[in-house]
Design a protein around this nucleic acid. Structure first.
Lengths: 306, 306
DNA sequence: TTGTAGGCGTTATCAC
DNA sequence: GTGATAACGCCTACAA
């Protein structure tokens, strides 16, 4: 028998050799059935195109691989109504789930959770306690960025807002709140995509702000492109900051100041949680990653008022 | 019984209702064993961080989902020696494979193929006929770019080469060959990453070329960043072109001229091939996608010789 | 130390 | 049309 046991040396070798010759491979399906474990975990995301999910996926995939687990990805293609179905369906063939469904109504999620467990939730507000929750402390990241800008003498700061439904947008706004009237915040409805940032350049310039924080790096890069086309000097006339620290951010010109989010670590931690649960232990209830401020050259001293 | 059969209306309904109440869910493992089909396909890539694989993955995942198939990803983390093991291991739990292993020796691949079938190969040179092969016609893309540049009056063209082992780099070089001495090609050893392109700026300027084609968009963007820092006007003093048409390419400033590669379609086609094979049919032996030239503003008329 | 029976949850076959 | 039964391939436990 393959594996570790108390068998006669010689016979074991003979079996192994025979197996080799017939190139026998144990059937995964059969052992799944017998063992009750598929050695697979599901990773459910709303949109595989979003670079934000790639880092976590890689972290998850690599960490899980070390323990012999594979990851099954499911892209819900932004179809919120498909999410529950997909999640349940995925859970059926997996031992556990990493669920990223930022737009699923709280109530529905609550109802689903028992059926999906063990599961770790990504990027949700911490309301339910039954499943561990991993997320980014967006508010903290925003605070770091604002403090950085204030240190450079900025007072009137524009914010290119993300999708209004997005929980992470709300969290970012909360980050601004703590500054009260120390700063003049100018929120500008925008979006989460490159094109959104690109289109918002005019409004940003009209706002009279000396600095702008974008919803994320992608939006910031869109804005940067538009500003370049308009001949607006960054950071001399306007400071620009992003959020996420996507790989491109450090190579744009000027390099983007941003709040760095450790996506891969998030994936790794998700696995760590699942692994605990798979072994019957209780994982840490939740963890919020604090983004790290990365000051680059897209932010500088506030321009003198014209 | 669940499904479609010839059962009494009333009794079927009763069963369905009971199932609903007990919220019964058929065990995927058990049906895999009984049916001999896991309804899962494996996607094996050397590096999940590479944006090039995301498009194909999404295409694959969405297309497969329509037929009720899921995709299991495996990241070999650039460990060439791990690839065969991972591939076999993956194949065991999947009905079929999409294998992207551009660096695996031909001989080894040949030996592995029977064990992995049905499988479709991504981005390999077409040498073996036993498995369908999907790829990009890099040479054609290069030819389009060169013709584009020649039309703008460029004659001395630098090429920022990718990794020397890379088959796709060899293919690109072949694209240049057909122009013979109509152009003066200046190959510059570089790489496949942002930093590589960034570092190559000096050499490009020294080369006396009026235009440069980068191994891919990422490299081109690295170069663009460095040129910006050096105060080199693009395209006025130097035209720059990339390869791939990654999402960022259209939003850089200047927007990047490139050869557009339909990654998502590639994934979709991979699924189409697998689906044929899973149904016992013979799929098209191979398909080479012709990149589409996308002329943007990073390329312009050749500068007058200094 | 080695063999053997029973079960994991479905599906498929074949009498009824 | 409907119900019983034998696989599917592996694992575990118990008996030899």
């Amino acid at each position: 028998m393959n594996g570790l046991s108390t068998v006669d040396r010689e016979i074991a070798e003979r079996v192994l050799k025979a197996a080799e010759q017939l190139n026998y491979t144990p059937s995964a399906a059969a052992r799944s059935l017998a063992l009750g474990r598929t050695h697979t975990i599901g990773y459910i995301v709303p949109d595989l195109t979003n670079p934000a999910f790639h880092g976590a996926m890689r972290g998850l995939s690599l960490a899980a691989a070390k323990e012999g687990y594979r990851v099954l990805v499911a892209d819900t293609a932004e179809q919120v109504e498909e999410e529950p179905i997909l999640a349940v369906e995925s859970r059926r063939r997996c031992d556990a789930l990493v669920l990223c469904a930022p737009r699923m109504p709280e109530e529905e999620l609550r109802r689903l959770l028992p059926e999906l467990a063990p599961v770790v939730l990504l990027n949700r507000e911490p309301t339910d306690e039954s499943s561990p929750l991993l997320g980014i402390d967006w508010a903290s990241g925003i605070r770091d960025l604002v403090r950085h800008l204030m240190g450079l003498g900025h007072r009137r700061i524009a914010y290119l807002a993300g999708p209004p439904i997005s929980a992470s947008n709300a969290a970012r706004l909360r980050g601004f709140e703590s500054f009260g009237s120390t700063i003049e915040l100018v929120p500008i409805p925008c979006g989460a995509m490159f094109a959104d940032g690109h289109a918002a350049a005019g409004e940003v310039l009209d706002s009279g702000a000396t600095a702008v924080i974008a919803f994320n790096d992608v939006v910031a890069l869109g804005l940067l492109g538009a500003l370049h086309e308009l001949g607006v000097e960054v950071p001399d006339r306007l400071s620009v900051a992003g959020f996420d620290d996507i790989p491109f951010a450090q190579f744009t010109s000027p390099a983007l100041t941003t709040a760095s989010v450790p996506q891969m670590e998030l994936g790794e931690l998700a696995w760590a949680s699942l692994w605990e649960m798979l072994n019957g232990r209780k994982p840490e209830q939740s963890a919020m990653f604090r983004p790290r401020l990365v000051a680059r050259s897209s932010t500088g001293r506030a321009a003198k008022p014209a």
